[in-house]
Design a binder for these strands. Structure first.
Length: 367
DNA sequence: TACTTTCGTCACTTTACGTCA
DNA sequence: GATGACGTAAAGTGACGAAAG
């Protein structure tokens, strides 16, 4: 979708007011909004919401897996292989910027991710997860073991208050997910994740609330990657003592929340744009009325020298107002270019606005 | 090349839990 | 303290597209 609005006395072919949203097949991870105000008295802005640059740098899960396979020469553990596959990436999400345009600096991760983060690579990392506070009713505290060979992973030692006392696991089934089977193998250490939900023949679905630590860790990893490849998912799940399916669902819901917030921001922004344009439109209409009144006044003046009949014409695209006579061969004043109606029609413009440059906004408006 | 299967993601929905009046 | 309304997070479900065979 592309929305182009141009209003006012724009001298140069300004950046169109363009809203370019991605199709469903191109899911933007970061949206950008750039608004530029025209230097002229008119109103011109550009809004661009579209796929961001990081799509080219992100690696699909399959690609990552392929990378892993090719790198898997040694008998390394999953984590080191995982790091090898993901280490060079740095697709830090770019947040939406509204006016004033302030670039968002990439965050450095203070958590030790299962994969190297930019900050980790710079000698950062370590740090997080010291608190053992649990928001849930703690029945079982699992000290997450991590690989001693991975400083990043071992830096996040977390006591996880896992489950409410009456938790009996998820009763849901997932038919098509690869994790549906894989989860079974992952549930070994997750007592709460066992399928004990069928108690007395009643299939209850008790909901697990993630602890603050788990949520914070997932949040930090979400800042690094909005999507996870299977290795990342497994590593995260292992680290947080969750099922991979839970990690997957969390990221899924997190992406949905991000999108929802982004939509709200976009909506608010467009609302303000609409208000501004409405106000500008009102102003121009008033100006037009004044011009018409002036013209009427001249006609009623006995000393007014009769000239060929003139009409006020306003281009619906750029809303320029021009006084033209009724003959076909009207000259324009733009760039010393003479445009005729026939020529304009030949260019494919539905209407002839001699004071406008067809190449600028008319072509985009026609599309 | 057309078809099927597998897999990941999304949109939408349901459900359980926490909070508050 | 019990209760219902409400918001939110976790999870279920079906559809879709991409990739591989």
């Amino acid at each position: 979708m592309e929305l182009c609005l141009s209003l006012g006395d724009v001298q140069a072919p300004a950046e169109p007011f363009g809203l370019v949203s991605s199709s469903s097949s191109e899911k933007p991870r970061d949206d950008r909004v750039i608004m530029a105000a025209s230097k002229t008295t008119g109103f011109c802005m550009s809004l661009s919401i579209g796929p961001s640059c990081d799509s080219s740098t992100s690696t699909s899960p399959r690609e990552a897996d392929q990378q892993l396979d090719t790198n898997d020469h040694q008998n390394d553990d999953d984590r080191s292989r995982f790091s090898a596959a993901c280490g060079s990436k740095s697709d830090v999400p770019v947040q939406l910027d509204l006016l004033p345009h302030t670039p968002v600096a990439p965050r450095s991760s203070s958590h030790g991710f299962p994969w190297p983060t930019p900050s980790d690579q710079n000698g950062g990392g370590g740090g997080g997860g010291g608190s053992s506070e649990n928001v849930n009713r703690v029945e079982e505290v699992a000290a997450v073991s991590s690989s001693p060979t991975n400083s990043g992973a071992s830096s996040f030692q977390m006591d996880i208050g896992l489950y409410s006392s009456n938790y009996r696991g998820s009763g849901g089934k997932r038919s098509h997910s690869p994790e549906a089977e894989g989860d079974e193998g992952e549930r070994q250490s997750n007592s709460r994740a066992s399928d004990e939900d069928d108690i007395n023949g009643i299939n209850t679905r008790k909901k697990l609330r993630l602890s603050k630590e788990q949520s914070a860790f997932l949040e930090e990893s979400f800042k690094e990657h909005h999507t996870l490849n299977p290795k990342q998912k497994l590593a995260l799940a292992k680290q947080l003592n969750l099922r991979p399916r839970q990690v997957e669902v969390w990221f899924q819901n997190r992406r949905a929340r991000t999108k929802l917030k982004q939509t709200e921001v976009d909506c608010e922004f467009l609302k303000r744009c609409c208000e501004t344009l409405t106000e500008e439109n009102r102003r121009l209409h008033k100006e037009l009325q004044e011009l018409r009144a002036l013209k009427t006044h001249h006609h009623s003046n006995p000393f007014y020298t009769q000239s060929p009949a003139t009409t006020l014409t306003m281009c619906p695209s750029c809303e320029r107002i021009a006084t033209t006579n009724t003959t076909n061969t009207t000259t324009t004043t733009n760039n010393n270019k003479t445009t005729t109606k026939a020529q304009a029609e030949a260019d494919g413009f539905p209407r002839f606005y001699p004071f406008c440059q067809p190449q600028s906004h008319h072509s985009s408006a026609a599309s």
